[in-house]
């Protein structure tokens, strides 16, 4: 698991880095909706041009932008084959047992995979230009209306930000526990299912104990500082700038074009 770099954020000062996180989140949502409605060559052309433009403006190199895509290639292959081989509509090229490959299925498969690739790259652009904390804050700000129907938005935002802060620590601790138990003779690498099942207890129980111990310490510290919950004021947000509105306008326009014009 040390191969998975957590928090793909790459500090920088590009135009995309400077955009407000809320604007970026809303723009991403608009682009995802656009992507759902994309179906023609012209539509994909627009999305490709836009994505290339964003990668360039984020100051990312293509290797980084594609790094996450490369990791899930097998998954894409499965999705493609599932559609190509098992699609019910369309004319089958040939048929054997449960397999009935069709051109229509292959086209649907290719569409799904293409959309997923765009989705991953766009998502990565957001995450690599925005610190996770700002993404959470933006999420809390966008969730604010839910407060009116009785959902404790501030508590939720607090929990999410604490959770995000805990992720790297808990990952390290998990890794240490895994190594410590391996050194004591637990067999995580064994191909035998029985060994694996048996090694789960010594891994998972210590993970929960140390995670809860940390939770206990943090909660005690917060209570000692007088935090009671419920009265936390909303994080003050800076007003959106012109370029934030421009970004949202452009993405919404693309979304509308994909839905109605193409």
């Amino acid at each position: 698991m040390n191969r998975l770099p957590i928090g793909v954020y790459i500090p920088g000062a590009s135009l995309l880095h400077r955009l407000d996180a809320r604007a970026k989140l809303l723009s991403l949502i608009a682009l995802v909706v656009a992507l759902i409605y994309t179906g023609t060559a012209a539509g994909y052309g627009i999305m490709a041009a836009l994505t290339a433009f964003l990668v360039f403006f984020a100051g990312l190199d293509l290797r980084t932008a594609f790094a996450s895509v490369r990791r899930v290639v097998p998954f894409f292959l499965v999705i493609f084959l599932m559609n190509a081989l098992f699609y019910d509509g369309g004319e089958a090229l040939w048929s054997w047992w449960i397999f009935r490959p069709s051109t229509a299925g292959a086209i649907i498969g290719a569409n799904v995979v293409l959309k997923l690739i765009f989705l991953m790259i766009l998502f990565n652009i957001l995450m690599s230009t925005t610190p996770p904390m700002k993404v959470t804050a933006a999420l809390a700000a966008l969730l604010q209306p839910l407060g009116y129907i009785g959902i404790p938005v501030n508590e939720l935002a607090l929990m999410i930000s604490v959770a995000i802060q805990f992720i790297p620590t808990l990952m390290e601790e998990t890794e240490t526990i895994r190594k410590a138990q391996t050194a004591r003779g637990a067999k995580f690498d064994s191909p035998r299912l029985r060994d694996k099942a048996q090694s789960i207890m010594p891994l998972v129980i210590p993970i929960f104990i140390s995670a809860f111990r940390r939770a206990d310490e943090l909660a005690t510290a917060m209570e000692a500082r007088g935090y009671r919950g419920g009265k936390r004021r909303a994080a003050r947000n800076t007003p959106l700038q012109g370029c934030d509105f421009a970004a949202m306008l452009v993405t919404t326009a693309i979304c509308l074009v994909q839905i109605f014009a193409l």
Partner: peptide
């Protein structure tokens, strides 16, 4: 508070 942090 403790429940919230455990949830986190």
């Amino acid at each position: 508070v403790k429940k919230a942090i455990i949830t986190a």
